[in-house]
Design a protein around this nucleic acid. Sequence first.
RNA 1: CGGGGUGUAGCGCAGUGGGCCAGCGCACCGCGUUUGGGACGCGGGGGUCGGCGGUUCAAGUCCGCCCACCCCGACCA
Length: 479
Amino acid sequence: MAEEKLPTRAEDFAEWYNQLVLKADLADYAPVRGCMVVKPYGWALWENITSWLDRAFKETGHVNAAFPTLIPMSFFEKEKEHVEGFSPELAVVTHGGGEKLEEPLVVRPTSETIIGHMYAKWIKSWRDLPVLIVQWGSVLRWEMRTKLFLRTAEFYWHEGHTAHATTEDAMEEMYRILDIYEKFCYEQAAIPVIKGTKSETERFAGAQITTAIEAMMWDKRALQAGTSHYFGQNFARAFDIQYLDQNNTLQYCETTSWAISSRIIGALIMVHGDDQGLQLPPNLAPIQTVLVPIYKNDAEKSAVMEAANRIFTELKAAGIRIKMDAREEVTPGFKFNDWEMRGVPLRIEIGPKDVEKGSVALARRDVPGRDGKSFVPQAGLTGTVERLLADIQASMLKNATAFRDSNIHEPQDYAHLAEIVQNGWAFGWWCGSKECEAKVKEDTKATTRVIPLNQPAGKGKCIVCGSEAHQKVYFARAY
RNA sequence: CGGGGUGUAGCGCAGUGGGCCAGCGCACCGCGUUUGGGACGCGGGGGUCGGCGGUUCAAGUCCGCCCACCCCGACCA
């Protein structure tokens, strides 16, 4: 249950975040360093996220399956870049049944290797392709500094792993998924994202192309909200994933993998949260509207509760995720703050005056104070609530987009870039060299985030070295 | 791993020139009054004082070692 106030975001954003996660009842610290317990409210939110994505993947022909948590250590050594990328963060099981194991087992940090191994066994012919499998589960990476949802040792996600006959098919798959992720962010999470390609430095270990969607948090830092990778034949060659084509020639497959993790919950918090607490988009909120009955004595209580129960039943029947807060041990004022902390988008208050007038009071979470309140008739409330929820969803996206756009700037020169990235994103020309990228990081702590797919026409001068540049990139400090 | 800090009730803390029963606020339980923006009174329950060892008639308090966690720096979804 929520108690007391949060620090304001301006005072201490990191502390605001930490306390909010706990007070909004999303998660708690686990006894194991870096691990979190996702509480029922947080998990309900995650389920709303996963169920939308699951549906979208199934609509595009993907199927779910499960692969083991433990992976033979030797599998990681088969792909050079992959092992280099992941070895520092592996958790390794050395004993089982009281005996030292012949070969250590790795707790999966991601499943390319074991899935590649299985694909090699399953794929024989061009007729077997494409293979479009999604695994829902958790993975473990030994992180140095952790933060609930944003970076925990164990986190939850889906990982899609696909195998294709041709480069075109695999690339198309990578972009198809990126589009699904983008759609999810805009339509469900109300988070505007920029879709693009990662630089070589920022690429996934073992990938040929890494694409991502990047979002701006309230503190203007960037957060990668989802990734989709094209591996070319890297994993296929490492794991011998081969098929016979129509000409009876042995060919290597082209593979992809892609993921959105429970980190997206961190994005929801940092994009939409305010000094009152969490603010959830109606499409994902476990509780879309909370009903708070108000009364002073038994006579009022019976009249109010009768109306409240009627409204509750009606809205619930209409498919609205509604919660009745009939707790008697706390005051209405406490409940208002409590549900605001938890991010419920819309509150319905009903008291003796409303019973008399056949009305209710509505309070929008996204519009604080009196401005967000309205008094509407009980008649037709379902429609009113549905319209308001849709309006809140739209307005959250609109606000987040306006915020993001007002914090992206075009650097005029290198000094300007350094200034911009202290409190925003810089969108500038980049020659593509690692040296320029490293210099920016060294000088400003900002990294290249995405090379957007939508590029302006023409060419310019690299903002760092001044040589000819054919692409523009976003520079920002990132989570 | 480098630097800084903290371990006393679920949370936040006080108590440390050693001395009777280890305390306060919040939370929790009970009863009553309250209830349209974070209510109040009264009465309760709850502790290996991070761990191990040492000094002492006596250790939360002094000494040694260890452990854990947090914050700040280099990697990641």
